[in-house]
Design a protein around this nucleic acid. Sequence first.
RNA 1: GCUCCCAUCGUCUAGAGGCCCAGGACACAGCCCUCUCAAGGCUGCGACGAGGGUUCGAAUCCCUCUGGGAGCGCCA
Length: 473
Amino acid sequence: MSRALTTRFAPSPTGRLHLGNARTALFAFLLARAAGGRFVLRVEDTDSERSSEAFLEAQLADLRWLGLDWDAGPGREDAAGPYRQSQRGAIYAEHYDRLEREGHAYPCYCSQETLAVARRTQLARGEPPRYPGTCRELGALGRAAHEAAGRRPVLRFRVPPGQSLEFDDLVRGPQRFATDDIGDFVLRRADGVPVFFFCNALDDALMGVTHVLRGEDHLANTPRQRLLLEALGLEAPAYGHLPLLVGADGAPLSKRRGAASLGELRERGYLPGAIANYLLRLGHAGAPDGWVEPAALAGHFALDRVGRAPAHFDESQLLHWQREAVKHLDEAACADWLGPALPPDPGAGARATLVRLLRHNVLFPLEAAPWAAVLFGDLPAPSGDAEAQLHEAGPGFFAAARAALELAGPDLPALAREIRARTGRRGADLYRPLRAALTGRCDGPELGPLLAALPLDTIRSRLEAAEVATGRA
RNA sequence: GCUCCCAUCGUCUAGAGGCCCAGGACACAGCCCUCUCAAGGCUGCGACGAGGGUUCGAAUCCCUCUGGGAGCGCCA
């Protein structure tokens, strides 16, 4: 029976997720969904020093927000769990024993200083730095001596010499490595903590992962991990290495260089669909030109359309997808999105009115906030161009507008007709000063609905204020 | 230092020897529409990193250079 295609995302909770992580996660998720397979989330928290519960919670929240639901992982345990590496110590111990028993791994007592010196000399000689093999053939006696001296060994994998390793990378094609280019690598630190190479590969195999998508920086790890799994008699997944995401300066995105985290983008009001639509097209061809609904994303993802060159993150592109995302928001979702940025309770139904008015006029919730004041509070001081608009029209215009309002009411077509009859103004000459007086600015939603949403008294007093401000005789 | 990878408009990309004096999207500029902003429509700007080959013909194949990236850890 063939296993369902299974992918995974395996973050370390040592910080917030950034866009590069998000893209890797998204692609893995889409690959699974496109094939009707499974998506697993595994937490690589073996480094208790740097991992934190708070980061873990934040990462899980960010992934859920992006729409990446895992079939197995934290909160969705199954027989292959636990899905936190910090809870898998017994499993690792068992495999360490086996590796050592069968001669695939050996204890190494070399000090870090010794190794650093060796590395330096190798580098100076123009050789690649590699473990010199000092402890490789250490007998029982030698070990006993080190132990007696109180040294704690690391466990090293014995890389078989003289072999050529070949495999197909899911995105980069055929790869070939020589085992002679790979030094014996560490599987377990002296303090007993398992290292990435080991638990990452082992867990993938144990959790039934069939396709691993990860950053290009892991490409050279792949032969080691395949070697390791082979020694354990486990089936290795297929690996695909995604090109890195780089910033405008061409340097890889990293949190410490100010790359925005997913969480920050979210706090700034970006919509998950905007992020996903952008990411789908970053270093990946074949997506249609227009907006793709989140649920349809998987249908547009194909591994063979993933590029091999580093992709630049460009916020103006993200902004475009944000615009699309807002456009495709329904009213309820829009209210949820805008809600937190609006004042507590501008009054019954007021919030819904605001949302309806602003739906197509703002890109971020922050831009909506000032409108709450415009509609239901005191008018902020007019902008410069609004003020110019006011003076261009003059007090007579606003006096006429006030009189017209008493006759026609707040219905824009009727009101405009009445004002036109009294002032001779029409079109832009009529609407723009009206807008300026009513909102204190020159941009914003359509005037008709705006007028209908404003209390009649507010309209009156703002027209009067404009008349006074422009110098009523 | 050594090994490996990558290279088309500002950005994401199409392009797998003639369909390409290179197509699309975003951005930018202009025009139209319009009470404004946005949206929408139209037009424009804009690239095969350089040099050598191979070929009747190269963005596509080969070589060199340049530029960028990755890896070589008791980091993940």
